[in-house]
């Protein structure tokens, strides 16, 4: 089963850093697995925990939240709020029994196309052995 399992990942990217960084990966023609669908938001600070739960409810096998490096947020401190909020969400998801590998947070700047590529590749590698996410999935 694990062999042809294609994990589905939702990546919430802030517009100013991580989305720009992932665009740079494209401009530089770096290659990463096509399992990720990006959703660009203004700032990592605007990502509500509900988005993350919703993505898992709707069947995502992994969720990534990525913003500017601490101190570099376009809106000064949005990513500090995000960091705190995400830490809580991570604990909660683990408490519920979701494998911790399924939910990741990263800092990717507009210049870090390589880093984004690596994060997605590693994420997919980590998800394949876990198989489909069923814990939070609702039959829609």
């Amino acid at each position: 089963m694990a062999e042809n399992f294609e994990p589905r990942i939702i990546a919430f990217l802030c517009k100013w850093c991580s989305s720009a960084g992932s665009d740079l990966a494209g401009v530089s023609r770096m290659q990463y697995p096509p399992n990720v669908i990006p959703i660009t938001v203004m700032c990592s600070g605007s990502i509500s925990p509900l988005y993350i739960f919703d993505a898992f409810n709707k069947g995502a096998d992994g969720v990534l939240v990525s913003g500017c490096h601490p101190g570099d947020c376009h809106y000064i401190k949005g990513n500090y709020y995000a960091r705190r909020r995400i830490a809580l969400v991570k604990k909660l998801l683990e408490f519920i029994g979701l494998e911790p590998e399924r939910f990741q947070m990263s800092w990717v700047s507009a210049a870090e196309g390589t880093k984004y590529t690596q994060i997605i590749s590693d994420f997919v590698d980590a998800l394949i052995p876990l198989g489909p996410q069923t814990k939070l999935r609702r039959n829609l």
Binding site: G26, V27, Q31, P34, P38, T117
Partner: peptide, 12 residues
């Protein structure tokens, strides 16, 4: 965005 986020980063 189906270029930077898709066609340029994939081959399949």
């Amino acid at each position: 965005n189906i270029r930077e986020q898709c066609s340029w980063v994939h081959k399949d």
